[in-house]
Design a protein around this nucleic acid. Structure first.
Lengths: 81, 81
DNA sequence: CTTTATTTGTCCGTATGTATG
DNA sequence: ACATACATACGGACAAATAAA
């Protein structure tokens, strides 16, 4: 992916992942590995974590500590019900 | 058991096992199986092994290779006599 | 004796959490 | 943003020793 040098990479990556979720390319429960994403986007894992943190805040993904990061499904507890 | 996500599971499990030993729920010579404990606490065996390693360092339990892990009794060789 | 089950020891791989430069 | 290292946790697999059937 080509990055716009005027905006943060993590932001652009978060947008790209959002597109993939919305389009169904990343279905519910799909696992998003930080290491794999870092390799795919050619960035540091630290940058991927900034992107996934934003997606987590947006409620699009869910992270289970020490296990993995997944696309949120309708059955996931939203925490603020 | 419920885990405090801010502290390592192996640490909390070690504390729980310590309570059981102190209270007599796990008497002297009582056998602690890694596989059983992992199933009971709902964690990986690796996590149990980290907990038992700490208890072993604390001198509370004794592990006989390929045989089992047991609550230490007063007749056990402490190794530093 | 052989078979089966149990238990610890070890190693591999994967993933996130945290911390340091 | 990056590079690196280590800690924590899970899953699986296999070996070696032991015990019991």
């Amino acid at each position: 992916m080509e990055f716009d040098p005027t905006r943060p990479k993590w932001q652009q990556i978060a947008e790209e992942i959002t597109r993939r979720i919305k389009s169904g390319q990343y279905p519910e429960r799909f696992q998003l590995s930080e290491v794999r994403l870092a390799a795919e986007f050619g960035v540091n894992r630290d940058t991927i974590r900034k992107a996934t943190a934003a997606l987590r805040d947006a409620g699009l993904i869910l992270t289970v500590p020490n296990l993995g990061t997944f696309v949120r499904s309708t059955e996931d507890d939203q925490g603020d019900a």
